[in-house]
Simulated scan of single mutants.
Amino acid sequence: MMIQGNDPYREPSFTLTHRLRRQLWNIVQALLFHTSPRPCHVWRAWLLRLFGAQIGQGCHVYPEVKIWAPWNLQLGSFVGVGDGVNLYCMDRIEIGDYAVISQGAHLCGGTHNYNSVNFQLVVKPIVIGARVWVCAEAFIHPGVVVPDGAVVGARAVVTRSLVTPWAVYAGNPAIKVGNRVNNHG
């Protein structure tokens, strides 16, 4: 779907089909997703599935979540995604079972190669493990893996994959600052 070797100053980075599909999603997102009442999680999950998202059971995706391309989104079961979250899924974003993505968090699946003459677009998947909590206004870079049970503190910036499961990370860049107790086996 992404066009390689193009000149992003004068040419699109994605195919026409992809851009049209995204435009249709933007209309649906504005008219039917964002305007839906807060308790209508089943409705929003249905809309996301309609556009190719893989959504587990019992997910709560709130109405003010911004999703760039739902067909690149996979949510496990009982995932919570709070208002103001930006799922910039230019590549795949996978969020594991019982994970919580809090208000204002930004999961960014795309960036640019600043050493490229034309700042070539680069997209990479993001994987958020099961029982992870990405706290308010945290930023997750492209290509990052957050292991099971980890907590990413409020306004933390995760620039590289985190290593230790069931740990607490905070700061910019995020570093391990503590551990969580794994009561889930």
Rank of each mutant, 00 (worst) to 15 (best):
E137N: 14
H41S: 14
A45Q: 05
A53H: 14
R38K: 09
E137R: 15
A138H: 09
P12M: 09
R19Q: 15
Q74D: 03
I27E: 04
C59G: 05
W46P: 02
R21H: 12
A130Q: 15
Q54C: 10
P70G: 03
L73F: 05
I95V: 15
S161D: 00
N113Y: 07
A30H: 11
D148R: 01
T159S: 06
R49V: 02
Q29R: 12
R131S: 10
H60V: 14
G153R: 01
R160I: 01
N182V: 13
I140C: 04
I126M: 03
G56W: 10
L16I: 10
V163N: 00
V181A: 11
V132G: 07
S77A: 12
R131M: 06
F119T: 14
H106T: 08
M90I: 04
K66I: 08
Q4M: 09
V168T: 04
H184Q: 07
G178L: 04
V134T: 08
Y98M: 11
Q57M: 09
Y62T: 11
V79G: 02
L73M: 05
P173G: 01
Y169Q: 08
F139W: 07
G109A: 06
Q23S: 13
Y62C: 14
T159Y: 00
V100Y: 03
G82V: 03
N172K: 08
M2F: 08
G185E: 08
F14S: 10
H141L: 02
P8S: 12
R180F: 00
P142F: 02
V146Q: 01
K176H: 00
P39N: 07
Q120G: 15
G129D: 02
A150D: 05
G96M: 09
G58D: 10
V117P: 14
A150I: 02
N182F: 05
V65C: 13
S77H: 12
R160F: 00
A167E: 02
H34W: 06
R38T: 02
G76N: 09
Q54S: 13
R21G: 11
Q57T: 15
N179Q: 12
T15I: 07
A69L: 13
G153Y: 00
M2G: 03
H106A: 09
A154F: 04
T35L: 15
R19T: 11
V163R: 05
V134W: 05
F139E: 00
G5V: 13
T164P: 04
N86K: 10
L162N: 04
K66S: 08
E94W: 05
L32C: 13
G110L: 01
D148F: 03
V163E: 13
L31F: 12
S161L: 01
V65W: 04
R44N: 03
A138Q: 08
G80T: 14
I95Y: 09
N183T: 08
V79C: 08
P39T: 07
F14T: 10
E94S: 15
P165Q: 00
A138D: 08
V134P: 01
H112M: 06
R155S: 13
V181R: 15
P39R: 12
L48K: 04
F51S: 00
A30L: 15
F139A: 01
S77Q: 12
F33G: 00
G104K: 10
W133M: 11
T111R: 13
I95Q: 07
C108S: 14
I93S: 06
C108A: 07
A167Q: 01
K124V: 01
